[in-house]
Nucleic acid binder design. Structure first.
Lengths: 295, 295
DNA sequence: CAAGATACTCGTACGTCGTACGATACGCAA
DNA sequence: TTGCGTATCGTACGACGTACGAGTATCTTG
């Protein structure tokens, strides 16, 4: 079963279930007409509540809503996501506007709003596409050993962030797309061999994700300041700061080796390629120790 | 010496240094007029380059530029930062527009641009104000024990993120403000008792910061989806996903206990108040073990 | 005390953004 | 062929950041 087919199948099932739910709600509304005004009011309020909920940018909606059908649409959501990703990759997240995306797709701006309700939805789509790169492909088995498995997943996650640094700027975690569910499932698989309470597994899984995101964010910032910042001015400024005497430990270091070498050292130690693996290892060590202690 | 006085002193020293630098450049330019056209061109190019550098949103500039003086200004940068922070705290980062801030300060919108060159600078100011809450106050001694010290700092950092969650949305780490330098200095103090290479200290300090940020981000998202998300629809959707059979480990769990309890469990384990300390402890354990191994 | 310099204030306007609305063009079912 | 639902998209609105330059208050100097 190919990925796209899976997607279609998902959609069909979701649609079916939703239709059922809707019908049920309507039925209950129709029924209430026969009964008391009070009951009808109640049912109506319920219906309204459901409407309100649905109208909110309910995370579900984007995924379950039927994508444009019947008269064959020019585009697909995948097209939007792919092109949007390309724009963000090349020109940054700021460059990703609806107009720009539309131009790139050779389409009117408002056409996009047939595939997506808001720009936020577009971003959710794009984020899920990035998560698709995190998901371990089926031809690559997830190791049985939990450390190896978590390392594999963490490494892939970091790689995705390196490739698409802007992902760290668009902060809308909550909406759960198919690929993030897949990621969660694979994380569960990674710790499957551990004989610990479920809550502890969630704890550990989240911990790894959190570490990777924190690291990636810092890595991105380091890269960024590497490229942009004007080191000289920065150093001048910090040196003045230090001269005020309010930073004793920094002062001690600069006395010893000078500010510029110190500066270089900070950045080079941050840019050390082994840092990610080393600290992931430390984290895993800490987890392992706590597991052993719990036995 | 009070904080404000310190700020003033800083400024004065910076101004002095800058003035000196400027004079130097101008002197060299004036001198070049006496010499060959070639030399003059060179000096001019250099001056232009300096200008260009200065004009870029050089991180330094915001901090060293003389804040409005002489005819006593109505506002101070601190006012801007404080009010901006209040807006972001109450109505979110999106609500923080220059117009809104100006209205809140009962001032014309463009007046703000006398205190700050761009909105980005305002955000840098605000971020540094938040960092001010992270900085350990002088009446609270930093423990000698490195674990206790790092725990103290990490806890304060997290608290700041809890109090100002929007900080995690405004991503402009590079600009180094006074308070982030102070934070760095205090982090150095925290690991001062460790007898390890400097690069390793930087590594560890950054690692803690990264963990805290990653954790805080996840915590913020959990809170957010707690308040906003429509759990029912989400559960319906995920349940349909699971029914496709593409998520074996999730499926196993839902078979066992049902999706809704599972869902609750995931979130409650994420919301466990002890999570932060526990995982920080694990991380520190891992670090400690690696230090012992290096001996 | 007059007057010019200076630094602060801010109204107006431009270009960009997301997107609401409604008109139009297309293509399948009848 | 007709008609109707779907897809396309031009226009326009309000909010944003901010460039420009005119106005205004205060301090300095003569």
């Amino acid at each position: 079963m190919k990925k796209e087919q899976l997607g279609e199948a998902l959609r069909d099932m979701v649609i079916e279930k939703l239709t059922e739910k809707k019908a049920q709600t309507e039925r209950s509304l129709a029924e209430s007409k026969k009964t008391s005004a009070k009951a009808r009011l109640k049912a109506q309020m319920k219906a309204e509540a459901i409407d309100a909920i649905t109208e909110e940018l309910s995370a579900l909606d984007l995924w379950t809503r039927v994508p444009p059908q019947s008269r064959r649409p020019r585009l697909s959501r995948e097209d939007l996501a792919a092109t949007a990703m390309h724009i963000a990759d090349t020109d940054g997240l700021d460059a990703l506007s609806m107009r720009r995306l539309a131009t790139e797709l050779e389409v009117g701006t408002m056409t996009l709003y047939h595939y997506v309700r808001t720009k936020d939805e577009l971003l959710t789509l794009v984020n899920d596409a990035v998560m698709g790169e995190v998901v371990v492909p089926s031809h690559m088995p997830i190791p049985r050993d939990w450390r190896a498995a978590l390392t594999l997943i963490a490494t892939r996650t970091r790689a995705a962030f390196v490739k698409h640094p802007w992902t760290l700027d668009s902060n809308d975690d909550p909406p759960i797309g198919p690929n993030s569910v897949r990621h969660f499932d694979q994380s569960l698989e990674a710790v499957a061999s551990l004989d610990i309470p479920l809550a502890d597994k969630f704890d550990i899984i989240s911990l790894i994700d959190e570490y990777v995101i924190g690291f990636s964010r810092s890595e991105r910032n380091a890269r960024r300041s590497d490229a942009i910042d004007d080191e000289d001015e920065m150093i001048d400024y910090v040196s003045v700061l230090i001269d005020t005497g309010a930073f004793p430990h920094l002062a001690a270091l600069t006395d010893e080796m000078g500010l510029r070498p110190l500066w270089k050292k900070v950045y080079s130690s941050l840019r050390d390629e082994k840092r990610f693996a080393r600290n992931l290892g430390r984290l895993l060590d800490g987890i392992e120790a706590s597991l052993r202690a719990a036995e």
